[in-house]
Every structure is written in structure tokens, then in C-alpha cells.
């Protein structure tokens, strides 16, 4: 089965972080705590990326998600004074959502495990290749003509548009005169 080594232990710890953080996000009443649970979960995902030998993505994950998005969310929580959301945390159909989600997960789990059920099933990857593309290859793929140069440019336009849009939407027009 699965042997116990540093990698498996790390995977177990990271899984606890990812899933525990996720559960914290959807259940906690205090939204600042929720944002910090989110940070924990995202850190776990960054750890996964390291395990999957994608250190560049791990660093970007920490930088973008924790350094920017989580901070943005905390700011929004404080600016909207919704730190502890008054009243119910969940809406009225929460049990319906829970049942749907559990059914969905069972479906997904069957879809994931069934193909690899039993040893040596076809399609199961038994050994990882040692040569892995790094940040250089990723960079070249992003700007290569037959790679992702068009999505890359579109992404930069999207970011610019999002930045301008966010500023325009969030600007307080009553304060403009000052």
C-alpha cells in the first residue's frame, strides 16, 4: 500500500491544513477568523505545490493569495463592519445544500477511485518522471507563439480591467469633493 515516509507524512499534515482550513471558512461566524482559516487552507495548497515539485507556483500562491487576496478580504470585512455577521450564519436551505454537496462528493469520489480500484489497474501512474519543467520552462511556455502567449496577453488585459473596474466601483463618490 502506501509506505510511511516524509512525503506521506507531509501530505497528511497538508491535507489536514487544507481541509480543516476549508471547513473553518464555511462554518465560522467571525469573518476575520474565516479569512485566517482561508490563509491556512491556501498555505496547505502551497505545500501541495511544493510536494508536486512546482515551487514557482507555491511561491506565487503565497504571494498572490495570502499577500494580496486574503488581505483584501480582511480589509473588506473590516470596511463593511461585517466582522461577526448578525443573525444566522447559514441560510434556510443549508441542509439542502449539505445533502447536495455530500451527494456530489460521493459521485466525484466514485469517479476518482473506481478507475484505480485494485492494484495495477490500467491508467494508474506508478512512477513519477524525474525531469520536471521549472520556472524557466513555464516562462517560455507562457510567451511562446505556439504556447500561451494569447491567453497571457488577455490575462494582463483582464488584470488591468479588473484593477480599473475595482477602483471605479469602490470609489466613494460622496468623498470626491474633498
Amino acid at each position: 500500500m502506501i509506505e510511511l515516509n516524509a512525503q506521506t507524512i507531509a501530505f497528511a499534515i497538508l491535507s489536514v491544513l487544507v481541509l480543516g482550513g476549508g471547513l473553518g471558512v464555511v462554518t465560522t461566524r467571525n469573518l476575520v477568523h474565516g479569512a485566517l482559516w482561508l490563509v491556512l487552507s491556501l498555505l496547505g495548497v502551497a505545500g501541495y505545490f511544493v510536494l508536486l515539485s512546482a515551487p514557482f507556483l507555491a511561491a506565487v500562491q503565497v504571494l498572490v493569495y495570502i499577500g494580496a487576496i486574503a488581505i483584501l478580504i480582511v480589509f473588506a470585512v473590516m470596511l463593511t463592519r461585517s466582522m461577526t455577521s448578525l443573525g444566522e450564519v447559514r441560510n434556510r436551505q443549508w441542509w439542502l445544500s449539505a445533502i447536495t454537496v455530500i451527494l456530489l462528493f460521493l459521485l466525484l469520489a466514485v469517479g476518482i477511485i473506481l478507475p484505480v480500484w485494485g492494484r495495477g489497474a490500467p491508467g494508474e501512474v506508478t512512477s513519477l518522471s524525474a525531469t520536471v519543467g521549472g520556472a524557466v520552462e513555464l516562462g517560455e511556455a507562457l510567451v511562446a507563439g505556439d504556447g500561451f502567449v494569447l491567453p497571457f496577453e488577455v490575462a494582463s488585459i483582464l488584470l488591468t480591467a479588473a484593477m480599473i473596474g475595482a477602483i471605479v466601483v469602490a470609489r466613494d463618490e460622496e468623498d470626491e469633493g474633498a
Binding site: 514557482f56 511561491a59 499577500g67 494580496a68 488581505i71 480582511v74 521549472g134
Partner: peptide
């Protein structure tokens, strides 16, 4: 291999601790 990016990423956690 991503030394500098690691520095930036760790540094960005600084904002979380302040918050």
C-alpha cells in the same frame, strides 16, 4: 531555484501578521 520569489512570498506574510 526561486530564491528571490521565496523572499517576496515570505515578506508578503508580513501583512498578515500586522493585520
Amino acid at each position: 531555484s526561486i530564491g528571490i520569489l521565496y523572499f517576496v512570498a515570505v515578506g508578503s506574510i508580513g501583512a498578515v501578521k500586522v493585520m
